[in-house]
């Protein structure tokens, strides 16, 4: 069962059509389109007419890299998802274009992920993991090599966890999954998957640093630290706005629960079945809000903490 879940979890980030509410899908498209417009302009400045061949071949590279798998245990295998790596080695703007091409081709050709929800998939597999991974990596910008690698590893891990969290929240707010179950399960499973992502990303970067040291210095020249904030800002916006946009009864209940929460004197205006409270996971709409927010805040806190740790000057570094 666990094997099946972990096998499936990688695919779980490709949301199919019909699993998100229309309003949420459009909201995600809006966010994606705005960021893509910025990315296209910035990348064009950097690459000029080279942009198309470089981005196209690199997108094919990410697709091919996802084919490189390694046996994990009991017949399952892990592979790279690649958003963090793409953003780190190509820079955020080219990285976003590349990941968008990968997502679009997977949806158009293989139906991995839907068309109407493609905006959400760009958010979940491109924007959020890319900026989170890149942001953490940039925090170690002027540090030693091993420091950078450690930051990339943490960033890659966080990128997968953040992607899973946002996917779970989008599904729950669309009324296609139970928030109390889907958030801990998705985040939990992807905490494991993220470790594979971190290992492979770090190893790939080690190789690239050795074979093409100039490349990473180049992409490090583009401005940095605020990308953590950009990535998180987008994630938070979606998380906060999605429930208000949700047309499904669950989403409305969720908002109703929140209003009950704001006017603390009121009871929650709806009743769950008395039989199916799930201890430890929460039993009211109130706890679901808290769960969602706590999730995002935990990720933020971890990133900031990691940032602090990395920023602390380390004189004893040997710079392996």
């Amino acid at each position: 069962m666990l094997a099946f879940i972990s096998l499936v979890a990688g695919i779980l980030l490709h949301i199919p059509d019909g699993f998100l509410s229309l309003v949420i899908s459009l909201l995600c498209w809006l966010a994606a389109v705005v960021m893509l417009a910025v990315a296209a302009r910035k990348a064009q400045v950097d690459y000029d007419e080279r942009l198309i061949p470089v981005a196209g071949v690199m997108a094919a590279f990410i697709f091919a890299a996802q084919m490189l798998n390694f046996p994990v245990a009991g017949g399952t295998s892990g592979h790279l998802i690649g958003a963090a790596l793409a953003f780190i080695v190509l820079g955020p703007w080219l990285g976003l274009l590349v990941m968008t091409a990968v997502i679009a081709l997977q949806a158009l050709l293989f139906q991995d992920g839907g068309l109407i929800v493609m905006g959400a998939n760009i958010l979940v597999m491109g924007l959020v993991p890319g900026f989170v991974g890149y942001g953490v990596y940039r925090l170690a910008a002027n540090r030693s090599k091993s420091f950078k690698l450690a930051a990339a590893g943490v960033g890659a891990w966080l990128s997968i966890v953040a992607a899973a969290l946002v996917t779970a929240l989008l599904l729950a707010f669309s009324g296609t999954a139970n928030l109390d179950i889907v958030v801990p399960v998705m985040v939990g499973v992807h905490m494991l998957i993220g470790m594979g992502e971190a290992l492979v990303t770090v190893a790939a970067l080690t190789f690239i640093m050795r074979s093409r040291p100039a490349l990473l210095d180049e992409s490090a020249a583009t401005a940095g630290g605020r990308w953590v904030l950009a990535g998180l800002g987008i994630a938070l916006l979606v998380v906060l706005f999605a429930p208000y946009a949700s047309p499904s009864p669950d989403g409305l209940e969720w908002v109703a629960g929140q209003q009950g929460f704001l006017e603390t004197a009121l009871d929650a205006p709806y009743q769950f079945l008395p039989d199916y409270t799930i201890p430890g996971l929460g039993e009211t709409g109130l706890s679901t809000i808290v769960a969602g927010l706590v999730g995002v805040l935990v990720v933020t806190a971890v990133i900031l903490l990691v940032g602090r740790l990395l920023k602390r000057p380390q004189r004893s570094q040997s710079g392996a």
């Binding site: 091919a64 892990g78 790939a204 970067l205 080690t206 190789f207």
Partner: peptide, 13 residues
């Protein structure tokens, strides 16, 4: 995982 990562790096180059 490390070997796979090196392969990814190789493919990238």
């Amino acid at each position: 995982a490390k070997v796979t990562g090196h392969m990814v790096g190789q493919l990238f180059s």
